[in-house]
Simulated scan of single mutants.
Amino acid sequence: MTKIEAQKRRKHRFNIYLNQSYAFPVSEATLVKFALAKGQVLSAERVAEIQVAEAAAQAYQTAVNYLSHQLRSEKEIRQRLQRDDWPEGVIDQTIQRLKELRLVDDLVYGQSYTRTAMRLQKKGPGQIQRKLKEKGLSESTIQQALEEYDDQTAQDNIEELAAKRLKQQMRKYAQRDSEQRTVRYLMQKGFDSDAAKQAVQRASQDLVDDDLEDDKLDQQGQKYWRKYRRLDPKERYFKVKQQLYRRGFEAGAIKQWLDQVMEKEEG
């Protein structure tokens, strides 16, 4: 070895010269690991050993950088390293090292993904299962990860999605069509068909109940509005509000109804 030269643009990288000619680059870690120094005699076998170690070190650093942003599955890391054309032996060695350091664990990845998907994105178990399969997790690992998705959270998610989606659809379509569209939407989100149909039925009934409640409020409100027509506007407003509240209507609904009536009269 005739020369060891620090690279100008890349810190902790060195160029190795053999017999006055550039041979290969190494990282500082490889330099230290093999105790490389000027004047050493390196056999072809030793050079090959150094280059394999250097390839493994670079592949490992690439994987660590890739993991620095978020958790990754083993398949994702393998695909990332394959993009750089690392030999399969180097990739296998890198994956094994990451596993030993617990930087890669498909079960931990699957559990984390499940918790995030069910809480923030309201995804159903089926959609999560499909996604984890795409990420390369085994079937047994996927089933373990899905244990994070408890029944109560699944019920809360599907009911919230059903109510919101059905209300949106019924602004544009007939009730039956809206219900069918909402069921399909829930199934696409990863919920099974029976659960989707039941959730839509409950949401539909709630919407009907809300409409009936609005009709009752309007009926009673009109009655009291006529009854107190001789009072001044402020006192009339207060009296009607008081009577409707005693009838058990919600304060927010009462205020909305009274504001609409007052706006019409002033207009």
Rank of each mutant, 00 (worst) to 15 (best):
S204M: 00
I16F: 11
V90H: 04
V200P: 05
V183S: 02
K123R: 13
A55W: 04
D206Q: 15
A196S: 14
R181Q: 04
G126W: 01
R247T: 03
D156M: 01
I4H: 06
E263G: 08
G89N: 13
N157C: 02
Y237I: 03
K11N: 13
G248M: 02
K216V: 03
Q222R: 14
H69Q: 06
V64L: 11
A251M: 02
Q111L: 02
R181W: 01
D84Q: 15
K216T: 06
L207D: 03
H12T: 10
A253Y: 02
L81M: 04
A59E: 00
T141L: 06
A63Y: 08
D218T: 15
K135Y: 10
Q61T: 15
Q96I: 03
K135R: 11
M262N: 14
V52I: 13
E213V: 07
L101M: 02
K99N: 09
S112G: 07
E100L: 09
Q58V: 14
R176F: 01
S21M: 02
A35R: 12
S73K: 03
D85W: 12
Q79N: 14
A63N: 06
Q168F: 02
Q243M: 12
A56Q: 15
R13C: 07
K164N: 06
T153P: 08
A163M: 04
Q143Y: 04
Q175G: 02
F191I: 05
L212E: 05
E5F: 14
K216L: 09
Q242V: 07
A163I: 02
G89D: 05
P233I: 09
G221T: 10
E5D: 08
D106I: 06
D150M: 01
E235H: 15
